[in-house]
Amino acid sequence: MPDPAGSMDPRERSIIEGMRAGDDRAFERLVRDNIGPLHAVALRLLQNQADADDAVQEAFLSAYRNFSSFRGDARLATWLHRIVVNAALNRLRRRKRQPDHGAVIIDVSDLLPRYGEDGRPEELHQQWVRPADELAARAETREQVRQMIDKLPENYRTVLILRDIEELSTTETGELLQLNPGTVKVRLHRARQALRNLFERELELTREA
């Protein structure tokens, strides 16, 4: 998102100028100011502390080496976010070739809504008895939700994270995952549908639950 030079945060401007001048302290400020949220992004994608540490380190070193490519037409945090997402996704691709770590993964197709020949649902959908804000206020529920997201197959989970949590566009998500926009949309929709079903069942969100 363009950020006119006049509205740039003074601290961010100082870091950018310092980085361009080769000031060591500017790099340290860049790291300290951004490592918290970037580490959280890497951990969400990789689900593993050591891998997240490696991805974050790789991302900061890549930012250092390639700082000349930062043009200042986006927030520095946004530019770094893209780099760390890329680093984490590269690690995920490499990890795919390794054996599974024993995690419980659901079959998304088992959780999609079912319909009869006439196009009507096999079970009528009901109104949820508790809204999201009330549910999210409970630490136990937040943990349950995170665990259910982690049960999604990786190709659905990564799309959901990039679109609904990192708030990347369909186009950006497709570029990062090397998927066409239609495939991103279908995976996102199915991931949401599967989670809707899981949440409804596991969090007892209907009167009959």
């Binding site: 999201a132 999210a136 937040r142 939700v145 959901l160 949590i165 949401r192 989670l195």
Partner: peptide, 10 residues
Amino acid sequence: ETIELVRRCV
């Protein structure tokens, strides 16, 4: 609500 719950919890 599912989208909202995912955002709020994560």
